[in-house]
Design a binder for these strands. Structure first.
Length: 425
RNA sequence: GUGACGAUGGUCCAACGGCAGGACGCCUGGUUGUGCCCCAGGAAGUGGGGGUUCAAGUCCCCCUCGCCACCCCA
């Protein structure tokens, strides 16, 4: 029988790389705490309607990238392709905004999209994200963007760029959509086949195309910024001004549209400029989605802003940390495994060290001294504590310092003290 | 979903259509109670299935997986 393999595009994170994941997660939680964003955890799957209504039935994510399945024949479930819809659902379901006027939440976890894997793109991938509900002010936008940038900076990533744009409100979008269709329709034949289809379906996305045929005509297209009404314009100008005050370098890019339907007004994207991500250069992005609460059945409209960042991509862009090896010791038994008096004493000594907060390794196979020492060396043990017949009888331990090779025999209590002293040195 | 490229011990890399080899790692011993360096020995491999051939790791087809690009997005 063929050995089992993991599902395509879904990866194991092995011990060798787990430290970087944990460091990233800790850094994210730390920065969220500083900004007052509380962590929430939602299920990895939801009723499929949450996403088709929330994200937009016409988006690629919903049309062809969702993992859906039947829940014992009754309802159709979907593995979450992103985190915002679930967070909003949870806020609505638990009346979070009835308890406080503004909710600041953050989350992290796996997301699922059935795409062909490539560098920095997987079928199960991970996002960290933050959302603020109940505050429609430009300050909320700026705070959230600044939080995202702060986090990326905390990770040591420097080669990135922040792009911002405004999609305006519903009226603006409709107006702009018409303007775009009017502009591109005469050029229809010169566009890529994909964009010809987008012309009816989702004309804004033509601006996102990487096809040279589309790019050639992008420059002449009307700018959405010209379609903004006065209130949208004032909001966007305020966001940009605040970002400048907060020293968040950003460029205004009128062609930034993003792939989810729920955005209104401010959208932003953080792209890698170091080239370490290949074609998938977006580290993350987000924006304002003032209509989503209503879209999902909320009784009142709730202004909202949020973003998500891709963990795998951040890990690709972040520098390798130089992690100093942590202090640890090894306890070896100068007897084969069958001698329970000696091996038991070794295990008890390790237990006492661990109870005092020391990382202590025991090779419980209790093979030869040579192999136990080799193992201790592999693990980077600063000291090895040796227990044999004579030590156990005398209540003593032989302590060897690996770096110098010196070893001395002392009482058990002294040995414990020696380890604690070496650790704090 | 489309296209390109790829798949050899645990890892990295060799092998003209003709005996599958090296490095690192791993195990044992050299030292019946001592790691690293050194020495000796050992285990372990052609992703799966068909085909061509006297002979296939090598050529052909299919599958699977990986990877890159498109698409899209984190």
């Amino acid at each position: 029988m063929a050995p089992p393999i993991a599902v395509t595009g879904m990866n194991d994170v092995l011990p060798g790389e787990i430290a970087r994941w944990q460091a990233l997660e800790n850094a994210f939680r730390a920065v969220c705490t500083r900004y007052g964003y509380d962590e929430v955890r939602t299920p990895v799957c939801e009723y499929v309607e949450l996403f088709s209504r929330g994200i937009g039935g016409a988006t690629d994510i919903v049309q062809k990238e969702m993992y859906t399945f039947d829940d014992r024949g009754e309802r159709t479930l979907a593995l979450r392709p992103e985190g915002t819809a679930s967070a909003v659902r949870a806020a609505l379901e638990h009346g979070a905004l009835a308890k406080q006027p503004v909710v600041r939440w953050c989350y992290l976890g796996p997301m699922f999209r059935a795409e062909r894997p490539a560098k920095g793109r997987f079928r199960q991938f991970h996002q960290v994200g933050a959302e603020v509900y109940g505050d429609g002010s430009p300050a909320a936008d700026a705070e959230c963007i600044e939080l995202a940038v702060r986090f990326i900076l905390d990770l040591g990533v420097t080669g990135f760029k922040v792009r911002v744009n405004s999609l305006g409100g519903e009226a603006t979008r409709a107006r702009y959509r018409d303007a775009l269709v009017a502009y591109f329709t005469p050029l229809r034949e010169e566009l890529s086949p994909e964009s010809q289809g987008r012309l009816e379906r989702n004309p804004l996305r033509i601006l996102d195309s990487k096809d040279p045929r589309d790019i050639a005509h992008k420059g002449g297209a009307p700018s959405i910024l010209d379609s903004l009404d006065e209130a949208d314009r004032a909001h966007f100008d305020a966001v940009c001004a605040l970002l400048t005050t907060l020293e968040v370098e950003h460029v205004v890019d009128p062609t930034l549209v993003r792939g989810l339907d729920y955005y209104t007004r401010t959208v932003f994207e953080i792209v890698d400029t170091s080239g370490s991500l290949g074609a998938q250069d977006a580290l993350g992005g987000g924006g304002r989605y003032d209509r989503l609460f209503e879209e999902l059945g909320g009784e009142t409209s709730v202004p909202a802003f949020g973003f998500a960042l891709g963990v795998e991509r951040l890990l690709l862009a972040a520098p390798e940390p130089v992690s100093p090896k942590a202090f640890c010791v090894a306890v070896v038994a100068a007897a084969k495994g069958a001698d329970l008096a000696v091996t038991g004493a070794a295990m008890a000594l390790a237990r006492d060290l661990r109870a005092r907060g020391v990382t202590a390794h025991v090779d419980t196979r209790f093979h030869s001294m040579k192999s136990q020492f080799r193992r201790a060396d592999d693990l980077g043990a600063a000291m090895v504590l040796i227990l044999g017949d004579s030590e156990v009888r005398a209540g003593e331990v032989t302590v060897k310092t690996m770096a110098t090779g010196e070893q001395t025999r002392q009482t058990r209590a002294q040995a414990l003290e020696a380890v604690l002293a070496a650790r704090s040195a």
